[in-house]
Each structure stands twice: as structure tokens, then as C-alpha cells.
Simulated scan of single mutants.
Amino acid sequence: MNYKCDIYAYEHVDGYFIIHVASNRIVEDLPPFPTPLMEFKDFKIMYDIWNDASSKTTHKEIGLPYDGETFTCDTLEELREMFMELREMGYIFPDSALELIDDEIKERDVESKD
């Protein structure tokens, strides 16, 4: 989301999930980050533009209770529940993050029936 997302989450190699919550947001909109699938010359030009803009940004504290916190969740359900709690507090992340968790839950449930 080009620095407009407050959450960074991933599955740890040991099978649990980690959520890092941002402590601040970039105020300005950045130009689109270049895609690595483009020609290198075009990528380099776009990256230089993006990098220059990002080096001049203003950061503003989010000001919500979990700013800068890290959470661990043992299950996908706990992960989804924590995402919902963070969203209700006002943290920003794309709907696709919840959709991905829901898809993973469905896939796990289908596999467990086999």
C-alpha cells in the first residue's frame, strides 16, 4: 500500500503468526512504487523518483493504543480476531488481508476433511 498500511503480518517458520503495528504514518502520498517486472532502465527511473519523494516525507504519530506493538497469534482465527480489533481501533490495512486469512482458514478446513 506504499506506506499507507499500519500492519505488517506474517507466518513465522514455527507456525504461529506475528503482527507488527506501525507507530507512525507518512503524511504525503508517494508516487507508485515500481514493479520489478518492468525493464531495468524504467524501474531505475521510477525507483529514483520514488526514493527521492520518500526521503522527503513527513511522519506523523498514529496516536492509537497499539502503536509500535508486536503481537503473536497461535491460530488463523486469533490472527483474524486481532486484525478486526486493530481495524476497530482505527489502524489501516487492506480488506484483502482479511480475505487472505479467510481463504487460508477455508483451505485448512477443506484439507482437514480429506
Rank of each mutant, 00 (worst) to 15 (best):
T35S: 15
F33M: 08
D6K: 03
D48G: 06
E81W: 12
Y16Q: 07
I26L: 11
P34L: 06
L86A: 02
L98H: 09
P94D: 12
G63Q: 04
E77Q: 14
E28W: 03
V110L: 06
R108Y: 03
I105N: 00
V110T: 05
Y3G: 09
E81A: 11
E104R: 14
K60H: 09
E81H: 12
D102M: 04
D14G: 03
S112V: 13
P31A: 02
I45V: 15
Y66E: 12
F93K: 00
G15P: 00
T72S: 14
I92L: 11
S112W: 09
R108G: 01
R87Y: 12
S112L: 10
I45W: 06
I49E: 15
D52W: 02
M89D: 07
F40Q: 06
D109Y: 00
D109H: 01
D48R: 12
Y91L: 03
D109V: 00
H59G: 07
R108H: 03
C5D: 14
N24W: 09
L86M: 01
N2Y: 06
A53Y: 11
R87M: 09
P36K: 07
T70V: 14
A53N: 08
D103V: 04
H20I: 07
I101D: 01
R108M: 09
D6E: 04
I19E: 04
V27I: 05
I19H: 09
E111T: 03
L76A: 00
E107I: 07
Y47V: 03
V110M: 06
M38K: 08
V110C: 01
Y10H: 08
K4M: 10
I7A: 05
H59F: 14
G15K: 00
A9K: 04
K56H: 11
M46E: 15
K60A: 14
S54A: 14
M82L: 10
D6I: 05
D42W: 04
D102N: 10
I105T: 03
T72I: 11
M82C: 10
M84F: 08
R108V: 02
D29I: 05
T57A: 08
M38P: 01
H20Q: 11
K41N: 12
D114S: 13
I18L: 08
D52K: 10
K60T: 11
K56R: 15
H20A: 09
S23A: 10
I7N: 02
T35K: 10
E88Y: 05
L30H: 02
I19D: 05
T70A: 12
F83K: 05
I92S: 11
M89L: 15
L98A: 05
W50T: 01
E81K: 14
E61F: 03
S112M: 12
Y8R: 11
M46D: 12
L79K: 01
E11F: 00
K60Q: 15
F40R: 12
T35Y: 08
C5V: 12
E107K: 10
P32I: 03
K60I: 13
M84L: 14
